[in-house]
């Protein structure tokens, strides 16, 4: 499922720009697992992630003409997915004070994970929404606390405290799944 060492998708990107349906389909098939993984990290549930992935692809194809560097398509697509996910979370208005959210981790005794990456997705899904969002934006996407505060409409201090709590809970969840970091 990983991109091949010699990427062929740049041809599909060029074709998709011209409106070639076949190239669009191949691009969709090729990057859907990656987009779904990003969406799962933010949304936590499969149906929500599907909605975000679908909207991300639609937005990407509609704005493909704005992409300057074809080689940067995966990063561009990932950023679009992140933005769509944040928009979706905002639209649901589920931003609540994090301390008021039930922070009990999901039970994972029966879960079996083939890799650390899959386990991380499951752990992130078990995080409260606010924790998950800040952890993803700061630790994975590399945003600063100021950027996160602007994006989410919260203070920098809130972002920092949520990150600390999210890391602590994430490490606890990983430990429960036998992943010691």
């Amino acid at each position: 499922m990983h991109p091949p060492s010699t990427p062929r998708w740049h041809v599909w990107v060029s074709g998709s720009r011209k409106g070639d349906r076949v190239c669009q389909r191949r691009l969709f098939d090729h990057f859907l697992p990656m987009v779904m993984a990003v969406a799962m990290r933010y949304m936590g549930t499969y149906p929500d992630a599907c909605d975000v992935a679908q909207e991300a692809f639609i937005r990407a194809f509609q704005r493909l003409s704005e992409l300057r560097d074809v080689e940067g398509f995966p990063a561009w697509l990932r950023k679009i997915t992140v933005n769509v996910a944040i928009d979706a979370l905002r639209a649901r208005r589920r931003f609540q004070p994090l301390d008021a959210v039930d922070c009990r981790p999901a039970s994972s005794a029966a879960d079996e994970f083939h890799s650390d990456a899959e386990a991380i997705l499951a752990c992130m899904a078990a995080l409260p929404e606010g924790y998950r969002l800040v952890l993803n934006l700061y630790d994975v996407e590399g945003y600063s606390h100021r950027e996160i505060a602007e994006k989410l409409g919260i203070s920098e201090g809130t972002s920092r405290s949520q990150l600390a709590k999210a890391r602590r809970m994430m490490q606890q969840l990983l430990k429960q799944r036998g992943i010691e970091r």
Binding site: M36, A37, R41
Partner: peptide, 24 residues
């Protein structure tokens, strides 16, 4: 965490994938 997150992939059942493509 970034390395693991970026390596993660989620495969969809082909039926779901096809439905999503139709909507896209």
């Amino acid at each position: 965490l970034r390395e693991q997150a970026e390596a993660a992939r989620v495969d969809l059942p082909s039926a779901d994938q096809e439905k999503m493509w139709q909507r896209v």
